[in-house]
């Protein structure tokens, strides 16, 4: 499997706080990753860096073999220009914990507008794709609703459809069910599973839903303090974690683990 994402010795600071500490990570094309770990361990930061919402202080990230935060000018790497970042963003999409839908647009328009503005498709094409995606996420009857007229779970499904409409090769999901009432979590997770099984999109998912992670992921990464403490197949990590920190963390979620 070819790597679609590579982090080489990446560090990130917020002021004097070191949030990522010499991180190395390789993600294969089409791989489904679940990122787990305690709050504040840097999981969100990794996704935000990939989405170009945060910069890095040192190290190199490549996406599809091209440096993300740098570009080559006369064979030397310099910080990326806005034009370069815009090219790279075409490859990546993100779904946020708080949905971040556009409140002044209907559900359908939320999915149409970025296609028209960014992918330059026709109105008809955008509308058709938006309608299909509303079907896919089970909201065919909510097309003309504004975000505030939808439940959290429905809003999040629209947000997922909006990200999908841009045809990203890599999708980032940051605790997409954490803001939802418990009874709405499953409807969102089942959409993620559907995407995982029906597309070859590379997916990086930060989650606290361990049963979901186990079913969904090809590989689990356990983070603590800006480092990957342990990684491996779901079976291994969830039944027999090697690192005491992983075990300590998972004990809160998995009964029977000692």
């Amino acid at each position: 499997m070819k790597n679609i994402i590579e982090f080489k010795d990446v560090s990130k600071y917020f002021g004097s706080l070191k949030v990522l500490d010499g991180l190395n990570l390789e993600v294969g094309a089409g791989e489904k990753l679940a990122l787990i770990g305690p709050s504040g361990s840097g999981k969100t930061t990794i996704l935000r860096i990939l989405m170009t919402l945060e910069t890095i202080e040192s190290g190199l990230i490549t996406v599809e073999g091209k440096p993300l935060w740098h570009e080559k000018v006369n064979e030397t790497l310099v910080p990326a220009s806005e034009a370069h970042l815009q090219k790279m963003r075409q490859i990546i999409g993100m779904v946020f914990q708080q949905f971040n839908l556009f409140p002044h647009l209907t559900a359908l328009s939320n999915i149409e507008q970025p296609q028209i503005l960014v992918r330059k498709v026709t109105k008809e094409e955008a509308r058709e794709k938006a309608a299909n995606l509303m079907d896919l996420v089970g909201l065919e009857d909510k097309k003309d609703h504004y975000p505030h007229q939808l439940s959290g779970g429905q809003q999040q499904r629209v947000a997922i459809a909006r990200a999908l409409a841009m045809d990203p090769k890599i999708m980032l999901f940051d605790e997409v069910t954490s803001a939802l009432d418990p009874e709405l979590v499953d409807e969102v997770l089942s959409v993620l599973k559907k995407i995982a099984t029906t597309t070859d999109t590379t997916m990086l998912t930060v989650t606290h839903e361990m049963n979901f992670a186990r079913e969904f992921a090809d590989r689990i990464l356990f983070f603590d303090k800006g480092q990957i403490v342990e990684q491996g197949l779901p079976e291994g990590i969830f039944t027999n974690p090697k690192e005491p920190r992983t075990r300590g963390f998972l004990k809160k979620y998995i009964t029977g683990l000692t």
Binding site: Q86, N100, L117, V118
Partner: peptide
């Protein structure tokens, strides 16, 4: 978060303001 959503969808700065 609205700015970030637009950026994640790859809006230009002009599109961010305009739309």
């Amino acid at each position: 978060e609205q700015r970030e959503a637009a950026k994640a969808l790859n809006y230009t700065n002009f599109q961010l303001y305009r739309h």
